[in-house]
Amino acid sequence: MTDAWRELYDTEYPRLLRALLAIGGDPDAAEDAAQEAFVRAHRTGLDRLERPGAWLLVVGTRELLRHRRRRRIEDQRWAQRGSPQPPGMDSIADRADLLAALRQLPDRERTVVVARYYYGLTYDEIARLFAIKSGTVGATLHHAIEKLRQLHIAGRLARGAIR
């Protein structure tokens, strides 16, 4: 194992793990998918990856979503667990609300949002990497953000109501 792989791992793995956790909502599945993405990258060869970070996100996301349909029970459990919100910590609560809202989006919208805002990919890159028509990336993103905003506001209101 060369230093290049260690460097790639150290650079990309933390970001990939968080992205997949945000998309899937399950730490174990995120870990499995992230590790699998690196194994596949290793098989493919570092010199054949044009943008390793984006490549890992695409493969990891695909891996994550491939098993997602079979895991609805777990999703329900995840939702039931909720997020711990220490009293008086609005910023943390806000983040938890945002993540909770993100999890209510469809898989595709959630992936596009993470790719755009967490990975900073352009519309064209998202379209090319995730095989989405270039014209629909913006619309998908706008639609997702609008729903996020509504869900986020609703979450904050609900949180305020139960205090």
Partner: peptide
């Protein structure tokens, strides 16, 4: 909102 979300993910 996207930046806030990015921070939340991070």
């Amino acid at each position: 909102l996207g930046r806030a979300l990015s921070r939340a993910i991070e």
